[in-house]
């Protein structure tokens, strides 16, 4: 047993954190909705992402654990760039047998793809009907399982300020793709769930760090608010959620690499069922600890809460996961 990141992974986390933080400074919620930076990365940001190899990492030898190391940082810094979407789309294409040229072009940031998900975001879409292109800010194309490429339409309204979901437009070319088969389809689901969970862990950790920092510095009644028991108890409960979420994520990521596909999905659903509501609650509590300032548009607190809700919905919220796990755990008797 060896639970935790190895030295390389820890070093990778640091590198990712550095660039993610830098990308985050290029984006701002602004003073109000009309003043918010776009969710599309600008040319400079995109080239930095490409240079860091983030888009190609899934196509190289990286494990799911490695991917979660990156995605946690994207969540932590609420990075406004469609990296997770690219990873999910590229993996779908790879398992569908897409050509190496295309995969290289995706990894090199030249072809910008988005994953085609069911409108309710609970899984990859089977067809382009009733589907959306998730995390597709700046993307050019999304592919149906049958290989049809689609232009992307306008952004759909959404709560998340740092990622965009877009409508699926008219067909644009065709790739020869094969059905990846049940096993690989389950692996894709486990991957999507696990990356959503990693994003949630990053977001909630940032929310807590921000709130704790504030509680140290904000003085009311002549003392730092962090010295009041009511504040300490809320913050401590948040940390319990964060720590448990990390354990859940580690297991989910390891399972995706190491276990048979159906067990990997069960592990991923278990983790997501726990982490999704925990992340939302921590983001809500962080706003509580910030007080009024946390309710302003200029604050990152609601940016995180919005992103937590969006990642909670990605590949299904906790209720969706629990419905799946209920059948597995309880069977049909006693209903």
């Amino acid at each position: 047993m060896e639970i935790g990141l190895d030295q390389d992974q820890r070093a990778f986390a640091e590198v990712c954190a550095k660039l993610a933080a830098e990308l985050a400074t290029r984006w701002s919620p602004g003073r109000g909705p009309d003043d918010t930076s776009p969710a599309e990365p600008d040319e400079v940001a995109w080239s930095r992402i490409v240079a860091a190899g983030w888009l190609a990492i899934g196509l190289d030898e990286a494990s799911v654990v490695d991917l979660t190391v990156l995605v946690e940082q994207l969540g932590y810094h609420t990075v406004p760039a469609p990296v997770i979407g690219t990873l999910l789309a590229a993996e779908r294409l790879r398992l569908g047998g897409a050509g190496q040229d295309l995969l290289d072009a995706i990894g090199g940031g030249e072809v910008r793809v988005a994953p085609l998900l069911r409108r309710d975001l609970t899984d990859y879409a089977g067809t382009a009907a009733d589907a959306v292109a998730w995390d597709s800010a700046g993307a050019e194309v999304t592919h149906s399982p049958d290989g049809t490429g689609h232009h992307l339409g306008d952004p759909l309204p959404g709560a998340d300020l740092t990622r965009r979901t877009r409508a699926v437009g008219p067909a644009a070319g065709h790739l020869a793709l094969t059905d990846p088969g049940t096993e690989d389809r389950l692996r894709l689901t486990a991957l999507g769930l696990t990356l959503a969970t990693a994003d949630l862990l990053g977001v909630m950790r940032a929310a807590l760090d921000d709130a704790v920092e504030h509680a140290r510095n904000r003085t009311q009644f002549g003392a730092p608010i962090g010295s009041f028991q009511a504040v300490q108890q809320l913050a401590a409960d948040c940390l319990v959620s964060v720590e448990a979420s990390r354990s859940a994520l580690f297991h989910s990521a390891w399972a995706a690499d190491a276990l048979p596909a159906d067990e990997a999905v069960a592990a991923a659903r278990t983790a997501k069922a726990f982490v999704a509501p925990a992340a939302v609650e921590v983001c809500e509590t962080a706003i509580q600890l910030l007080g009024g300032i946390g309710m302003t548009w200029e604050s990152r607190a609601h940016v995180r809460l919005r992103r937590a809700h969006a990642s909670r919905a990605l590949f299904g919220d906790e209720h969706h996961q629990l419905r799946h796990l209920t059948g597995r755990l309880l069977g049909e008797n006693g209903r």
Binding site: V231, M295, H302, A313, H319, H320
Partner: peptide, 28 residues
């Protein structure tokens, strides 16, 4: 469900509900 983060007006009302425990004297 997922619709909540896909343009549901009530998401804004939900955000406002989070202010209920802050304004006019916080919950604590």
């Amino acid at each position: 469900g997922t619709g909540f983060v896909q343009g549901d007006d009530r998401f804004d009302e939900y955000l406002w509900s989070r202010a209920q425990s802050i304004y006019g004297g916080t919950q604590q």
